[in-house]
Structure formats: C-alpha cells, structure tokens
Design a protein around this nucleic acid. Structure first.
Length: 234
DNA sequence: GCATTAATTGGTC
DNA sequence: GACCAATTAATGC
C-alpha cells in the first residue's frame, strides 16, 4: 500500500492542514517523516479499536469513518474528502482508533506517526493552536449530529444528508459528486437500507431529486432546505 | 454470458 | 420503522 513520498511543497491540495502551515520553517523537518498510503475503493485502512498509528490526512479521494454497533450495524460518523483529517479522536490518549475508516474511491493518504505528531504539537505552536480550533469545531458538529438524530425523522435525516453531501462534495452534471450505496446512505441517516430507498423514491416522485444509477442529483435545493429549516440546518 | 451483488418494492409484525 | 421475501437492475469475472 506504500508508495514514494508526495512532496508537500508542490502538493495541489490547498485544503490540507499541513499545507496551510508550510510557511513555518519548523514544519520542514516533520513533513519528510510522513508516509504515503494508497488505497483502492472500499479498502479499509483504519480498524476500529486497533492501536493508533498516527493521523491520516487525505491528499486525494474520499473516505467514510464508521462506528460499529450491535448486530454489525454501522453508523457512518463522517464523510471526508481531500484536506480532511482522520483518526484524530483517538489521538491524545493515544492508544486506540475509535473509528474504522474505508476509502470510498481510490484515495491517497498522508500518514504522520504518533511520535511525529507529538513533536509537531510541542514545537509548532501555530499548528497546535489551529488544531485546537479544529477540535472545537468538530466537537460542535458532533453535538449538532446528536441533535439531528434525536429530533429528525427518517425523511428529514435523509434530506439533511443529501443537502450535506451536496454542499460538501458539489454537483457535477447535476449529480452529487460522491458514490454512496443506498446502504451507506442509510448508515449515515441512522436507518435501514429499505427506509432510505423509500424516502429517495418519494423525493424522486416529488421531483425534488433525480437519480442516475446510484448517483443522486438535487433538483430543488431551496425546497429541501425549507423542509428541515425548523431544525436549524445552518 | 453467467454469477454475484445492489437496488427496489411489497408485505408483515 | 425494522425485518423478511421476491423481483429486477447492475456489475464483476
């Protein structure tokens, strides 16, 4: 799964947390220690409960992170793309990954070991400060998700997911630019595949969305948004 | 082209 | 709203 290093300085990924701090001279010695990992679609590169082996930064591609519940049912916790960080929740206490991670398409990852991360945190204060803000932001998002799952019905949760991936991944040729199976849509919305499919068919009948194969396109963003307005989408 | 997997729909509890 | 079954569509080999 390993390949030669991508060079951070010439990396095209402007969203990257590392890239944003490259102007700091102290970063130079650390970025040479990263390991690149290349995953094919549906490869699992983090196992829930496995010992931490550093943080992953997505260089290119898309990844889902999941928590497994009883009866093997999975809850998708996050959907991530290039520039996002994976594995950070288990960081600090440092022992185990708290989530599993799968590539949703062919993906290139940059892996920084626990030791390297700790060194960066101790020596590059601007980086540490920004990461702190990042954690605060993520905590807020998690709490919003708790509220959503608690207060929204199935239809609202599916609509919320559609608007979310629409905003995060954008649409190409009128279709949202991410491949999710119906099962994965259900795993994110906290319901079953059949329920998710029913909601999608209804939305299609109402001409709010369209679908080509597994890809979904949103036809009426404002109408969908108004459906979940009362849940304070923004 | 055949076989396995995913998507869809209808029905029951 | 979950679970099961049957049918159909899609995809891998």
């Amino acid at each position: 799964m390993k390949e030669e290093q991508t060079i951070c300085y010439s990396c095209a990924n402007e969203n990257c947390f590392i890239k944003k701090h490259l102007h700091l001279a102290e970063m130079e010695s650390f970025i040479s220690k990263k390991q690149n990992v290349v995953c094919k679609k549906s490869d699992q590169f983090i196992t829930e409960g496995a010992p931490m082996q550093g943080l992953y930064f997505i260089c290119k591609g898309k990844v889902k992170t999941v928590k497994t519940g009883i009866h093997g049912r999975e809850q998708i916790v996050r959907l991530t793309k290039n520039g996002d960080i994976i594995g950070f929740r288990g960081f600090g206490t440092g022992k185990k990954y708290l989530i599993g991670a799968y590539a949703l398409e062919d993906t290139v990852l940059c892996n920084f070991s626990n030791e390297t991360m700790l060194e960066i945190l101790q020596h590059v204060h601007e980086f540490t400060y920004d990461l702190m803000l990042f954690y605060a932001d993520e905590l807020n998002k998690s709490e919003n998700n708790i509220r959503k799952i608690a207060h929204m019905n199935v239809r609202e949760r599916v609509v919320d997911l559609l608007l979310y991936i629409h905003r995060k991944f954008g649409q190409v040729d009128g279709l949202i630019d991410i491949d999710l199976s119906r099962k994965e849509i259900a795993d994110f919305a906290g319901t079953t595949e059949e329920q998710a499919i029913r909601v999608l068919s209804n939305l299609k009948k109402e001409a709010l969305i369209k679908s080509v194969g597994k890809r979904i396109g949103i036809l009426n963003v404002s109408e969908l948004r108004s459906e979940i307005m009362e849940h304070k989408y923004f």
